[in-house]
Simulated scan of single mutants.
Amino acid sequence: MDIQFTEEQELLRSSVQRLLRDQYDFDARRKIVASEEGWSRKHWSSFAELGLLAAPFSEEVGGLGGGPLATMIMMQEFGRHLLVEPFFETVVLAGGLIEDIGSATQQATYLPDIMSGEKVWALAWSEGRSRYDLGHVSTTARREGGSYVLSGTKAAVVAAPWADSLIVSARTSGERRDRNGVSLFVVDRHSPNLHLQGFRTIDGRRAAEVALMNVSVPASQMLGREGEGVAALEACRDRAIGALCAETVGAIGELNAATLEYSKTRKQFGATLGSFQVLQHRMVDMFIAHQEALSLMQHLNLSLASNEAGRSRLASGAKSKIGYAAKFVADQAVQLHGGMGMTDELNVGHYFKRISSINIQFGDPAFHVLRYAQLDAAA
Results as ranks from 00 to 15, higher is better:
residue 1 M to A: 13
residue 1 M to G: 14
residue 2 D to C: 03
residue 5 F to S: 06
residue 6 T to M: 04
residue 8 E to Y: 11
residue 9 Q to M: 04
residue 13 R to S: 11
residue 17 Q to S: 10
residue 17 Q to I: 03
residue 26 F to V: 10
residue 27 D to P: 01
residue 30 R to G: 00
residue 36 E to D: 12
residue 38 G to H: 05
residue 40 S to N: 09
residue 48 A to F: 00
residue 63 G to D: 02
residue 65 G to T: 04
residue 65 G to N: 05
residue 65 G to E: 05
residue 66 G to N: 06
residue 67 G to E: 08
residue 69 L to A: 04
residue 69 L to V: 10
residue 70 A to T: 05
residue 70 A to G: 09
residue 81 H to S: 06
residue 82 L to P: 05
residue 82 L to M: 09
residue 84 V to Q: 02
residue 84 V to T: 08
residue 85 E to T: 04
residue 86 P to L: 03
residue 86 P to T: 06
residue 86 P to H: 09
residue 88 F to T: 04
residue 88 F to H: 02
residue 93 L to E: 12
residue 96 G to N: 10
residue 100 D to G: 06
residue 101 I to F: 12
residue 103 S to R: 08
residue 104 A to F: 04
residue 107 Q to C: 08
residue 107 Q to W: 08
residue 108 A to H: 07
residue 109 T to G: 02
residue 112 P to F: 02
residue 115 M to E: 03
residue 117 G to Y: 00
residue 123 L to V: 01
residue 129 R to D: 14
residue 129 R to T: 14
residue 130 S to D: 03
residue 131 R to Y: 10
residue 148 Y to A: 09
residue 149 V to A: 06
residue 152 G to R: 07
residue 157 V to Q: 00
residue 159 A to D: 09
residue 161 P to N: 03
residue 162 W to Q: 00
residue 166 L to I: 01
residue 166 L to V: 04
residue 167 I to K: 00
residue 169 S to F: 03
residue 170 A to T: 06
residue 170 A to M: 05
residue 171 R to T: 09
residue 176 R to W: 06
residue 178 D to I: 03
residue 180 N to L: 10
residue 185 F to E: 03
residue 189 R to P: 01
residue 193 N to H: 15
residue 200 R to E: 11
residue 205 R to T: 12
residue 208 A to Y: 00
residue 212 L to G: 01
residue 213 M to Y: 08
residue 220 S to Q: 12
residue 224 G to I: 01
residue 228 E to Q: 15
residue 231 A to H: 10
residue 234 E to V: 08
residue 234 E to N: 05
residue 237 R to T: 10
residue 244 L to R: 07
residue 246 A to W: 07
residue 248 T to W: 02
residue 251 A to C: 11
residue 254 E to I: 08
residue 254 E to S: 11
residue 256 N to E: 10
residue 257 A to Y: 13
residue 259 T to Y: 04
residue 260 L to V: 11
residue 262 Y to T: 09
residue 263 S to A: 12
residue 265 T to Y: 04
residue 265 T to R: 13
residue 268 Q to H: 13
residue 272 T to Q: 07
residue 274 G to T: 07
residue 280 Q to R: 14
residue 280 Q to L: 01
residue 282 R to W: 05
residue 282 R to Q: 12
residue 288 I to T: 12
residue 294 L to G: 02
residue 296 L to M: 13
residue 299 H to V: 00
residue 303 S to C: 08
residue 307 N to L: 09
residue 308 E to I: 02
residue 317 G to F: 01
residue 318 A to F: 00
residue 321 K to H: 14
residue 322 I to K: 04
residue 327 K to H: 14
residue 331 D to L: 06
residue 333 A to G: 15
residue 335 Q to G: 07
residue 335 Q to I: 11
residue 339 G to A: 13
residue 340 M to Q: 15
residue 340 M to D: 13
residue 342 M to K: 10
residue 343 T to W: 15
residue 343 T to S: 13
residue 344 D to A: 11
residue 351 Y to F: 15
residue 354 R to G: 05
residue 355 I to N: 05
residue 358 I to A: 01
residue 358 I to S: 03
residue 361 Q to Y: 13
residue 361 Q to L: 11
residue 366 A to Q: 14
residue 366 A to S: 12
residue 369 V to G: 02
residue 372 Y to F: 15
residue 374 Q to V: 03
residue 375 L to K: 09
residue 378 A to P: 02
residue 378 A to F: 08
